[in-house]
Nucleic acid binder design. Sequence first.
RNA 1: GGACGCUUAGCUCAGCUGGGAGAGCGUCUCCCUUACAAGGAGAGGGUCAGCGGUUCAAGUCCGUUAGCGUCCACCA
Length: 875
Amino acid sequence: MKKQLSTKYEARKVEEGKYDFWLEKNLFSEHDKSKPPFTIVIPPPNVTGKLHLGHAWDETLQDMMIRYKKLRGYDVLYLPGMDHAGIATQAKIEERLRKQGISRYDLGREKFLEVAWDWKKEYADFIRSQWKKLGLALDYTKERFTLDEGLNEAVTHVFVSLYEKGLIYRGERIINYDPVQKTALSNIEVIYKETESSLYYFKYIIEGSEDYLEVATTRPETMFGDVCVVVNPEDERYQKYIGKNVINPSNGQLIPIIADDYVDVSFGTGVMKCTPAHDPNDFILGEKYNLEKPICMNEDGTINHLGHKYEGLDRFDARQQLVKDLQESGLCTKIEKHINQVGYSERSDAIVEPYLSKQWFVKMKPLAKQALDLQQTENKVNFYPPRFEKTFEMWLENIEDWCISRQLWWGHRIPAYYHKDTGEVYVGANPPKDIENYIQDEDVLDTWFSSALWPFSTLGWPNKTEDLERYYPTDVLITGYDILLFWVVRMIFQGVEFTKTRPFKDVLFHGLIRDEQGRKMSKSLGNGIDPIEVIDKYGADTLRHFLTTNSTPGLDIRYQVDKVEASWNFINKIWNASRFVIHNLTEDYQFEGLNLNNLSVPDKWILKRLNETIKAVSDNLDKYEFGLSGNYLYKFIWDDFCSWYIELSKVTLNSNDKDAVQTTLDVLYYVLKSIIIMIHPLMPFVSEEIYQTLHSDDVSIMNESWPSIIEHDFDFYAEVMEAIISVVSSLRTLRNEENIAPNKKIDLYIQVEDEKLLNALNDNRVYLERFAVSNTLEIASKTNLVGEGKTFILKGIELFVPLSGLIDIEEQINNLKKEIKKLEGEIARCNGMLNNPSFMAKAPQKKIDEEKAKLEDYQSRYQKAKELLESLTSK
RNA sequence: GGACGCUUAGCUCAGCUGGGAGAGCGUCUCCCUUACAAGGAGAGGGUCAGCGGUUCAAGUCCGUUAGCGUCCACCA
């Protein structure tokens, strides 16, 4: 019994077991070194949770490229891995612990890390199971984790090397501090949101006087750290006070009034308080005037001893209390509503506190310059779409140093050690020999410090491994534009610094995935879509097709159930077309190549269309235009192959001409096989199922080759086919308009001037009889075209369908008049162009020829319509 | 305050280097025809946001305005 596809397309059944089969056959991990390499390293998902639809999108695009390139003859490597995601993961783990009433300090560092590794294992397993469901062709033999031993070696190497070059330093600076996570953040981990806050005005009374300066601030709780007030030296209102002292209303301390043109005369009262430990600009002033930098806050965001009676209060409680007290004592004069940009921690959403603290920094200017220089060379990273390169450049041109230390436990420990007695700093890949005299830095590195090395650290760097040699630089990075600055930029500058080359040749950005209303998917809205639920309902192939073919590089997409269902329908169509083909193949059918000399007109036409489709699909995949390549496939498969070719093939298959049947089966087989190979990158499961049904269960479509273009001149036959299609389509419209049942036979007269076309149509009358459902069919160089009925004047062909009682002479005349008018318009347009000397002088010859050909066609049709009209009116 | 994106059919969106606007879904008509009714055959539907410019020719290039959106930026 020959193998068949089941009657119904059931994604679950089709997809079941395929992934394990691919794994068993080592199809993801076998590397043929005789082929050119093609590498994609997965953007490592965070081990914070399950993958969401955005991951599914990202990874499907990657997998599609991998599978496409494999079919194109590359030795592909799709390298999997995950990110420890320092803050994010630690926050999640602490949250889970909190529910059990445990804090990380109860456990201590070591114990906490054990818990964290358990967490990692749990989520890694989950993520792998999701990758499996999606069908990603990942080589698990090379899977990496940002916190594994090899990557730790890379991270340490980079840290030590940059330190030795003077590009990493430890310094006391104002950093963004998250008092909830109790850690420093880098600048881009702060999200500024427009927030309605208050602008408070306080009296700073001048020493030994009744006078006072009014100072406006949005953060009264930092007043305990004020060291002076500042006015603009040009500000006439306050010049007389410069050099005097004022009383800080929060604590009664005397502080001086100084002058600096940093102060904006028009903002607030034109007097600014200066708090060097709690504001980056004030810090700069502090440095400039060598001021003290008292810190008035603890690491948990509570006020410290400088706040006296407010000590221990949370910063915002202290603010409230202080304002209330000062209002009562008359020192708070005014409170205004004020809209300003307030920074929030990306992970914890806590309001970020600018905070003076000792942290590790990467000196960015030299690294940025190298990356910018790279982009001036031939070996630059190519951005798709190119506009993102501008964002990249602008950011690097205005870069500030990167704060890389984090007061966390889950991450790469900073390889710095401090001498217990001397305080001397030791930085090295290995601990100092007399380790007992040292204490290692407690902090870990920013997660992005390790992910910046991902494209090469995963391949074994800093060791000179075979993989690194072969697969690096990687070919394309596919990721969302939302992490351009976090990750992509950093991989590029670290890649240049440490590997002296770009880490990837191309970078393709996709957008965000939104819900049906266009809203960002988020936990708080509860509008997230679980990719696994979609897969369970429609299949991974459907989800993949939806995600890949509905997007344009760099733009967001909406998740739309209608479109997902359209993708399912498309697969169902392919399934049924495949069933038809397979059903018609006899048990002993063997494909032995196409006999190009024995092809029918429909055969030649579909092969020409196949050629065009292969080219269009390949070209667009090469340009990352997945939506366009999807459109070409869709149109070819649904319209050309299913609607036309399969229907036409039934004519031959039902005939007794054995040779013709064999040829038709060959073409059906050949085109179907080409189709499933081309859809394989989009729909790996169903294409494999069809492939195995055509062949056998132990072979895989993954070992096939991308279809190649058949070198043959199909042009004339395609024209014949197009003539047949236009005749059939015209008649179908006529039947609908005139309410003639599709199976009711009609008479049909076709007049063709061109002898070659005339003969070809006569040779292929069987298709016209069948699809036009004709009774009498006359195809001649001269035939009856007038009378009660409908005349069509097509390109090079005229048709007449006698319909007495339905269309009388008068209507026929009206129809012709309409047609003539339309043609006159077209002719006028063509003439307008062709008679325009500027057009003739400047337009490309190709365009001119096209217009000339059009004009010729219109004129001949016009002529014929005129003649017909005349013979009708003269009757 | 800078930079960028979007505005095309009722809805969601394509339209790559300028040369008579397309798809999916929805709507309307007909059809259970031997791969598929989650289907087939047809039809209708758009001054491509407004204005100006370049060009023989603009949805496409340039400028500008408006609406929506995103990113970056230290104004107390």
